[in-house]
Design a protein around this nucleic acid. Structure first.
Length: 438
DNA sequence: TCTGGGGTCCTAGGACCC
DNA sequence: TCTGGGGTCCTAGGACCC
């Protein structure tokens, strides 16, 4: 196999379990309102725009993910579909509880999304009769502890675990747990032949269509083709999927979530917005939210993109999709810095006379927030001299706010008091005690 | 007529995921 | 009347350099 196709050395004896909550948002609502059990229901997105979660009954009616609520109102009336506004705080809390339960089984766990986790189970397997029984115990434990129903898929690669989870959800005979790794080859190929290629994790609509033109319709068809030829036609991503489906694990568990490379804050407006004032309020709020997210992951941003959009669903109204990127002279996580930069950008792209539907801010060029001392040395032009140090301190003071000067001050306490009008710093350090500059 | 060659960096856009 | 809000990775092509 081509070396660069595979990120990591292929390891044998790996076994992944994917635990996925059924109809997560709907199930969360039902935990707190048991009367909703068996009632057809959806949870709606922001502004109650479209369905972002559907109960099994609603899925059976053929309602697709993301269907606008207004389009399904007739159907809702016919079948008594209940609609709920989303409550992301609740869902986040429930998600945390599920992960807590899963961690009891293994610490080697990747929280993949709000309702899905991958578990590395090969090391804990010997405590159980077989992978399926482990899966059943997990399923029962989550149900008992949180009230949420899950399905468990088990396989030698993440992609196979995903596929197994899909089978567990679709076919009642698995009773919620499907272990592909223990299946006889003939049985597995049978399931693969019955599953459309578009169901594979990473194969979306466009790729599925292209594959169909090549007479690759089922998962089995894809497994039969050579990964190398898939690479030529579709690139490394699909090649990797081919290997994964053959049980060669290419995607490893990511136990610690890597820091985000980009932070987005955006919202659609409930009704169209035209005035600069309203847009400014929205954009400033998004910048402030972004700053919060930045600080919580201890990052700073070097550039922010501000965008405003009219309603693309109304093609006969004048359209205005505009964005601008503002580069900061100094990377920052400061709310005031970010909001004023965002407003500066907005002023340049705003045009009166349009009905805006959406606005947002994207934070780019994220980097780790420098520590006080790193920043000190970065800023110093004159090293080893007190004057240089004080200059650097001034710069830090302006960058980090007034608290900074209290935690790093040069010279003896007496020196400092003399220079700063006898105000005592909380903490002083001798110049000699500072680490050597790089 | 013919029109180096290789490398890097950056960006926009596509495709996908939940 | 009414249409979500996040993210990731990969690729192609242009600018630029030697």
């Amino acid at each position: 196999m081509p070396e660069n196709a595979i990120n990591q050395a292929c390891q044998t004896n790996q076994l992944f379990a994917l635990v996925d909550v059924n109809n997560f948002y709907v199930s969360c609502e039902r935990v707190f309102a048991p009367k909703l059990e068996d009632v057809p229901m959806v949870v709606l997105s922001n502004n109650d725009g479209c369905a972002v979660a559907r109960s099994a009954e609603v899925k059976a009616l053929g309602v697709k993910m993301g269907t606008p609520w207004f389009q399904m109102k007739d159907l809702a009336q016919q079948h008594g579909i209940q609609a709920y506004s989303s409550n992301y705080t609740l869902y986040g809390d429930m998600s945390g509880r599920v992960v807590e339960v899963l961690r009891k089984f293994t610490p080697n766990l990747e929280v993949y999304s709000i309702d899905e986790s991958f578990l590395a189970i090969e090391t804990v397997l010997k405590q159980y009769a077989n992978p399926t029984s482990l899966g059943q115990i997990i399923k029962q434990d989550v149900k008992d502890s949180t009230g949420l129903p899950v399905c468990v898929g088990i396989g030698a690669s993440k992609t196979l675990a995903k596929l197994a989870n899909h089978l567990a959800k679709k076919h009642p005979q698995f009773t919620g747990v499907c272990d592909i790794s223990s299946m006889a080859k003939e049985a597995l190929y049978q399931w693969m032949a019955e599953t459309a290629v578009g169901e594979v994790w990473g194969i979306g609509g466009k790729t599925a269509k292209k594959l169909k033109e090549l007479k690759i319709n089922s998962v089995f068809d894809l497994v039969q083709t050579s990964p190398q030829s898939m690479r030529q036609q579709f690139g490394v991503v699909i090649e990797r999927i081919c290997y994964e489906l053959r049980g060669v694990s290419c995607l490893q568990l990511e136990e610690v979530a890597p820091a985000k490379q980009q932070i987005i804050s955006s919202r659609s407006f409930g009704k169209p917005v035209s005035s600069m004032d309203e847009l400014a309020e929205s954009v400033a709020t998004h910048a402030a939210r972004g700053a919060e997210k930045l600080r919580s992951q201890k990052s700073v941003t070097g550039a922010l993109t501000i965008f405003v959009q009219t309603n693309p669903h109304k093609p006969f109204e004048p359209q205005h999709h505009q964005s601008i990127t503002v580069v900061l002279s100094d990377p920052s996580d400061n709310t005031l810095t970010l909001t004023s930069a965002a407003l500066k950008g907005l002023r340049q792209i705003y045009k009166a006379g349009f009905k805006y539907k959406k606005a947002g801010v994207i934070l780019n060029l994220l980097a780790d927030k420098p520590t006080m001392q790193q920043s000190l040395f970065d800023d110093m032009e004159v090293k080893g001299k007190s004057a240089g140090l004080m200059k650097a301190l001034d710069s830090i003071n302006s960058r980090f706010g007034n608290a900074a000067i209290k935690t790093a001050a040069a010279g003896t306490k007496q020196d400092w008091q003399m220079r700063s009008g006898n105000k005592s710093p909380n903490y002083t350090t001798q110049w000699d005690e500072l680490p050597v500059a790089r």
